[in-house]
Design a protein around this nucleic acid. Structure first.
Lengths: 143, 143
DNA sequence: CGTCAACATCGATGCTCGTCGATGTCGTGT
DNA sequence: ACACGACATCGACGAGCATCGATGTTGACG
């Protein structure tokens, strides 16, 4: 459980892993705790030495979660919302997308480790994971 | 055709002002200037107030250029290469992709304003645009 | 002028992904 | 127990994209 593939710039055993398919894990069948996949990462400068294929794939998977207009707006709307958290009903209307689509995008962001889900009663509240976005920013920073 | 839309979170006119930020012209130097699309951007905190649909689309377009394993490796390989620049022939082999594919990815990065192309003789040298990646990182930073 | 090498562009193909309506699940109230 | 509302999941459709081989373009060199 919890494959937990971190980016780790270079070095490492660099195991074979021929299929390169492994680590897909969405962990959709989890009882309660979702298998958060990406985004914790150690801290790769990216512009330091050429990163390996596995590191690049892992980083790209997290960046893909952010590289979408709807998800970017969701992140900013959740962050800017009162109390730093918002439920789906708060996001569906201003986004202009259907409820299933919003739920899908939120799941992608949760799986990427950028959002945290907290179900209280009938409502599901989403909140930013404290250091997640800053980690991403740190990898892209050149200085 | 497609006047480059900058991110600019909300308010403020859509025109680019002279010294809005530090020095960083995406400006692919050369006679025939291509229709460079994104990436200069002013500076949106993202986690400040909900960004508009246009700003999100523009930001997502730039992030999509980075959210790919091959392009991430290209960025790091170019940055880590001697002199901070590399030609296509230096990148094709270590990447393990065909030459047309590498050229395609490089074009995407140039159009996004992240790489600059400099053709000298028969070779085309690519180099990082100074502040581009840091701007992207700045938008994602929450603090 | 002809040939070769380095890139860019083109067209096609297979896969990924964003979106939706329909449906399932779980709480809350009557 | 029943009905309703908030979300999650499913299956399907269409658009976008990564990749390749083939071909076009442009310098360098004899």
């Amino acid at each position: 459980m919890l494959v937990d593939v971190v980016w780790h710039p270079v070095g490492m055993p660099a195991v074979a892993e021929p299929t390169a398919r492994g680590a897909d894990v969405v962990a959709a069948a989890g009882p309660a705790v979702p298998g958060h996949v990406g985004a914790e990462a150690c801290c790769a400068p990216l512009v330091r030495e050429p990163l390996s294929a596995e590191s690049a794939a892992a980083l790209a998977r997290t960046l893909k979660a952010v590289a979408d207009p709807a998800r970017l707006r969701l992140l900013s709307m959740v962050a800017a919302h009162e109390g730093g958290e918002a439920c789906v009903c708060d996001l569906t209307e201003p986004l202009g997308l259907s409820q299933p689509t919003v739920s899908h995008h939120l799941k992608v962001l949760v799986d990427a480790g950028l959002l945290a889900r907290d179900k209280r009663g009938v409502w599901a509240y989403y909140r930013l994971v404290p250091g997640a976005l800053d980690h991403l920013a740190g990898v892209l920073t050149t200085s």
